[in-house]
């Protein structure tokens, strides 16, 4: 009898101990199961939402919505028009910074089709069956700057509107840069100052 009781006593002892200290091992297993700080109950931009029928958490704004503090009451600045006529001036002073900004934005948004200097021979235009307008025609050299701004804003022909991607001040900077490209491609030697001409001739002779 004693022999039979002994192992039973031993077993119950270890089970009690297991129950008593088991939670230590169990709590170790529960570590790192919580991700609620990693994934908090808020939406990230464009995150999928099961709440809205179309799955969009970023709700499309009602047409003509203006964000708080972003109302601009300047048709010249926003549309390139003054009294239904294309504006002939920029809505702000032209500086070297504006021109540099225009160059960067032109190279980001326009160069692919219109080419580095506006010949209409960008890499996309070279590949596809597209005919891209060159800026260096008599007609386009003489249009108002407001017209160029309007084309960027609303698109023209096969060119889509770029208003959603380029804010108005950058569209004006691009407009200024397009004008500069037109001047540069239509320039003659007489347009250069003596110093500039010397520099140009100098580099040419060095290259030769």
């Amino acid at each position: 009898m004693a022999k039979m009781q002994e192992p039973r006593h031993h077993r119950s002892f270890s089970i009690t101990r297991l129950i008593r200290y088991g939670w230590v091992a169990l709590s170790l297993l529960l570590v790192a199961c919580h991700v609620d700080m990693y994934d908090q109950p808020r939406y990230e931009p464009y995150e999928y939402s099961a709440f809205f029928a179309d799955g969009r958490s970023s709700r499309p704004p009602i047409p003509n919505t203006v964000a708080v503090g972003q109302f601009q009451d300047d048709p010249h600045f926003l549309t390139g028009m003054i009294d239904d006529q294309f504006a002939t001036t920029l809505p702000f002073p032209l500086t070297a910074d504006v021109m540099e900004r225009g160059r960067q934005q032109y190279n980001a948004f326009c160069m692919s089709c219109h080419g580095l200097v506006g010949d209409g021979d960008g890499l996309i235009a070279q590949r596809g069956p597209l005919v891209v307008t060159s800026f260096h025609s008599e007609r386009l050299r003489n249009v108002e700057v407001g017209y160029i701004f309007d084309v960027i804003t609303n698109g023209l022909g096969r060119m889509y509107s770029h208003a959603a991607r380029i804010p108005p001040e950058d569209r004006w900077a691009i407009t200024a840069y397009v004008r500069a490209l037109q001047l540069s491609q239509d320039a003659t030697l007489d347009d250069l100052s003596p110093e500039e001409r010397e520099r140009l001739v100098g580099t040419e002779s060095e290259e030769q």
Partner: peptide, 11 residues
């Protein structure tokens, strides 16, 4: 290959 700037899409 097409040399499109990052900002063209990630505006």
């Amino acid at each position: 290959e097409l040399k499109i700037d990052c900002r063209y899409c990630h505006a």
